[in-house]
Amino acid sequence: MNSTTDSKKRLDLHFPKHFTIILVIAIILLVVSIITSLMLGARVVSYQELMDGLFYTNQDSYGANVVRKRISRTIFSLCCGVALGIAGVLMQAVTRNPLADPSILGVNTGATLFVVCGITFFNITTAGEYIWLALIGASITAVFVFGIGSMGRGGATPIKLLLAGAATSAALSSLVTAIIIPSAYAQDQFRFWQVGSVGSGNWDSIKIFIPFLIVGLFIAFLSAPALNALALGDDVATSLGIRPGVLRFFAIVAGVVLCGTATALAGPIGFIGLLATHAMRFVIGPDLRFLIPMSALAGAIILTFSDVVGRLIASPGELEVGILTAFIGAPILIILAKKSKVRSL
């Protein structure tokens, strides 16, 4: 055996099986999701209009303008998908719980509550202000749910976290309702935001999003090898030179920043993290150095496609993407929860 086949074999061992082909398929799906998102909707544009809208700024046809409007929506949806996909994979890694997802753990309901309070009591209207409220709400909820979920014997077991998250989420949702019912103004403001939607995404929200997205991605990528070690249990991780508490803190911060920002800008969109991570773990396995970027990709693809489907089935109106992801996500969560093999990672 010569040294090139040797080093190729060596690399293959430390790459997920069939990684290249899976990456290629994912990129193709991403491109298809982007193109359909630009072309489909209440007004279906032609190929020519698509090209005009993208590359010929002097073309001023109606179709070209529709495409241009959809560019920001599409980019925004990709950002949200990436953020939610990574938030999901981080939450799962930190809790060693395959069912963890920002929506299931109540984190984005917490963000919602704070934003609603801001709208109702402080007349907050701009996305830049929503963000900070959402982040605070998401953080407090994360701490709270992990706190309750870790009580008692055995630490934060999957089922305890799930119950704590569901209970917290239900309580917070009813608070949200209680706060907005008496206020006509809040109801008005809140209506478009109550169900997650990427339709409101514009260049301004993308500009606000980017710095938070970069911070979250940066922490997620850097902590991937350490999170891989944490997957072997706290004792093994400690033996490998990790401080589990510090690592969990950073990973949760990144997860909360990503999920909180997406929630502030798009409204609550559930299950993306769960769907993206599970799909990817199924095909490439549990190595987080690959799973984190691939879940980001999968999150972007799933959210963008869901948005397109939402536009098509309710045409000429549109169905908010948050409703759609809940419809797809909830049954899958039930299937996963029943599958005994995923009770713990």
């Binding site: 997957a231 249990g233 773990r281 396995g285 190595d287 990672l345």
Partner: peptide
């Protein structure tokens, strides 16, 4: 280094 008694095995790991 220490190998504890019951380390966690992530599902599907090679």
């Amino acid at each position: 280094g220490i190998l504890p008694q019951s380390p966690v095995v992530p599902e599907g790991i090679t």
